[in-house]
């Protein structure tokens, strides 16, 4: 009896600790970032592109970096989500178990390698290629938004595949049988029934992928050129919100430091928006949740 009470307390303490930690992080970022938001103004911060933190009259406009983050996230997910879903369908339904296990083993290793290594790879391939072929264009050095997008897509792909494969494998075979029993073919069964039954898992894959992509810092810095730019040309250098924090935190002080924390707040809000949008999408037309 005492033992049970002990373990119950242990479980409860763990969850309290975990939630408290999360809460502390949020409070901390907001406390640190708030002075910048108050001094400079939240609206001005997100709608102004001028980032001159060390000037005499400093300005802390994050617009270009926000846009870089948004554009690189969306474009990289547009590459990795379809490829991820299609390859998970292929792995679960179209190849034999042996091949699937080999490929999944590789994918899981890829999911675990440090993203900087992916950065190396893109540096040697995409960046070199862009430099070799487009060096005559103004502002093109190879380090670019496009390279960053490749890094992010490559990096999120293993996560998306793994989660999609797991959720497709968890689809109750009774749905497959029902569909085939009604004269549907294999492809119809996959797209109309199995992927639909696996919806929530696939959305989870997208949320996880998007989280990794938005949060990625070092590998992006490695290939993006790290220059603040309105992302109007994918071949030009760019800087995302996270790279900005990592680049400048070491020498920032005062309001500049607060402004970096404030970009943390904005990242936080962006992740929240993604989660909410996906949740709404999942529930909309999602009669399976009725």
């Amino acid at each position: 009896m005492k033992k049970q009470v002990f373990f119950e307390t242990l479980y409860k303490l763990s969850i309290i600790f975990a939630s408290l930690l999360l809460l502390l992080i949020i409070i901390f970022i907001f406390l640190e970032g708030f002075p910048a938001l108050r001094e400079y103004g939240f609206i001005k911060m997100i709608f102004n592109g001028e980032w001159q933190p060390t000037a005499k009259n400093p300005s802390f406009g994050l617009l270009y970096m926000i846009l870089s983050t948004v554009v690189s996230t969306i474009l990289s997910l547009l590459i990795s989500i379809p490829i991820g879903i299609l390859s998970s369908v292929c792995l679960v339904r179209m190849v034999n178990a042996k091949i699937k296990n080999i490929i999944m083993f590789i994918v899981e290793i890829l999911a675990g390698i440090p993203s900087v290594i992916v950065g190396f790879f893109v540096l040697k391939t995409v960046v070199s290629f862009l430099y070799d072929h487009f060096y005559y264009m103004v502002g093109v050095s190879g380090n670019s938004m496009l390279a960053a997008i490749f890094v992010l897509a490559l990096m999120s792909l293993p996560t998306i595949i793994t989660v999609c494969v797991n959720s497709l494998e968890a689809v109750d075979p009774m749905y497959t049988e029902a569909s085939l029993g009604l004269g549907a073919n294999k492809i119809q069964t996959i797209y109309k029934v199995e992927l639909r039954a696996a919806r929530s898992g696939i959305f989870a894959a997208i949320v996880l992928g998007a989280g990794r992509v938005i949060g990625e810092t070092m590998a992006v810095m490695l290939v993006s050129g790290n220059a603040i730019n309105l992302p109007k040309n994918l071949l030009e250098p760019t800087r995302t919100l996270t790279s900005n924090i990592a680049t400048e935190m070491s020498y920032a002080s005062g309001l500049h430091q607060n402004a970096l924390y404030a970009s943390g707040i904005i990242l936080f809000i962006m992740i929240m928006i993604i989660n909410i949008v996906l949740l709404v999408l999942l529930n909309k037309g999602g009669v399976d949740n009725a």
């Binding site: 749905y175 029902a178 639909r196 039954a197 399976d288």
Partner: peptide
């Protein structure tokens, strides 16, 4: 075919 467990699609 009708199966042992009722298996309507999640639609």
């Amino acid at each position: 075919m009708v199966f042992q467990r009722p298996n309507p699609f999640p639609m």
